[in-house]
Amino acid sequence: MSHDVAYPVFCSPDLALALSTARRLMEFGRCDHSEVSVYAEFRSVAEVWRVAKEIPEGWFQGQAKCEERGGVLREGLPGLVVGVQGPGLPTDPAAYEGRMPVEWGLSELPVGSIEDAFTAVIGSNVGWINWETLCWPESPEAGFHGESKHAEVTLLFNTHTRKLDVLAEDYTVLVHVRSAVFGGVHTREPYAHWLAEEVGLTVVGPGQRL
C-alpha cells in the first residue's frame, strides 16, 4: 500500500491569492475525472448554524461521548454523531454539549463547484480544500514518470498542517506526491520541487504525512 506526502509551496495571509495559487497548481494536473472535497471543524454552535444556512447540503458530524465510543450501536447514536445535513441539525444548543468540535464536509464534487462558497464561509475556522485524482505530468528528461494515484493539491485554512493541529492566521498550499523513502532519502521530493517550479512556486517546508 502506497502513501502520499504533501509539501508546502506557498503561504500567505491573502486568501484570494492563496486560492488562486492553489488553483493554478491544480490546473497543472487537472484531468477529466478530477474532483474536489472540502472539510472544516467548528468549535461553536453559532458557527455550525451559520455555515448550515450558507451551505445546507454539507454533512455535519459531532463527537461521540466517552460512553458511546465502542459501546453503542450506530442505530442508537444521535443523528448529529452519525452525520446529518444542515436541515437535520439539532436546534437545541444543549444537543451540542460534549460534541465539539463539529466536523463538516463534502466530497467527490466537480472541480469548481464548491471552492468559492466554502472560501466565503470558512471564516476563522480550520479546514481545507483538497483537489484529488489529478494527473501530474511526466518529465522523462528529469527522471519523473508522472503520478495519478497520489496527485493532489490542498489549500489549508487557518492552519499550517494537514492534521489541523497548528493554528495560524494565513493559508498554505500543499502539493502531494507519492511517498518513497530508500536509505533514509525521500526519493520523490525532487518531483515535488519540479512540479512547484513548473507553475512559478517553490517548496518552502518539509513534507507532511497523515
Score class of each variant (00 low, 15 high):
Val126Gly: 00
Val126Pro: 00
Ala52Asp: 01
Gly183Ser: 12
Glu132Ala: 01
Pro110Cys: 12
Val9Glu: 03
Pro206Val: 03
Ala117Gln: 04
Gly205Lys: 00
Gln61Ala: 06
Met1Phe: 15
Ser37Glu: 03
Glu198Trp: 12
Arg209Gly: 04
Tyr191His: 09
Asp170Glu: 15
Pro206Glu: 13
Gly58Gln: 01
Asp4Glu: 15
Cys11Asn: 12
Val203Cys: 10
Ser124Val: 06
Met26Ala: 14
Ser148Phe: 14
Ala142Tyr: 03
Ala6Met: 13
Gly83Met: 11
Glu197Asn: 15
Leu164Arg: 04
Val48Cys: 08
Val181Ser: 07
Leu109Phe: 07
Tyr7Asp: 09
Cys11Gly: 12
Leu106Tyr: 09
Phe28Lys: 01
Phe118Asn: 01
Trp136His: 05
Val185Ala: 12
Met26Glu: 05
Pro13Ala: 14
Arg24Leu: 11
Leu164Tyr: 03
Gly71Gln: 03
His186Leu: 08
Ser139Tyr: 06
Cys31Leu: 07
Gly58Asp: 00
Cys135Arg: 12
Leu155Phe: 10
His3Gln: 12
Val121Asp: 00
Val36Gln: 10
Pro8Ser: 08
Asp4Ala: 08
Met100Thr: 14
Val177His: 05
Lys163Leu: 12
Glu132His: 14
Gln85Val: 02
Phe144Cys: 02
Ser113Asn: 04
Ala168Tyr: 01
Gly70Met: 04
Asn158Asp: 10
Glu35Cys: 06
Ala95Met: 08
Leu201Val: 03
Gly79His: 04
Ile55Thr: 03
Leu201Thr: 11
His150Val: 03
Phe157Asp: 07
Glu198Asn: 09
Pro101Ala: 05
Val111Asp: 15
Asp116Cys: 02
Gly71Trp: 12
Lys163Pro: 10
Val9Leu: 02
Ala117Thr: 01
Lys53Leu: 00
Ser20Thr: 09
Leu89Ser: 12
Phe42Pro: 00
Gly76Lys: 04
Asn130Tyr: 09
Val82Asn: 14
His176Gly: 07
Gly146Asn: 06
Gln208Glu: 13
Gly86Ile: 00
Ala117Trp: 00
Ser139Gly: 11
Phe28His: 15
Val166His: 06
Met1Trp: 15
Trp194Asp: 06
Pro93Tyr: 11
Gly79Gln: 05
Gly62Gln: 08
Pro13Met: 09
Val5Trp: 02
Leu174Val: 02
Tyr7Pro: 11
Glu47Tyr: 08
Leu167Met: 02
Arg99Asp: 02
Trp104His: 04
Ser2Pro: 14
Asp165Val: 01
Thr119Met: 03
Leu106Lys: 10
Pro137Thr: 09
Arg30Ser: 13
Val111Cys: 15
Leu15His: 07
Val82Gly: 10
Ala142Cys: 10
Pro78Tyr: 06
Phe42His: 03
Leu73Gly: 07
Gly79Ser: 07
Ser113Gln: 06
Leu25Met: 11
Glu108Ser: 08
Tyr39Ala: 09
Ala52Gln: 05
Val5His: 05
Leu73Asn: 10
Trp136Gly: 07
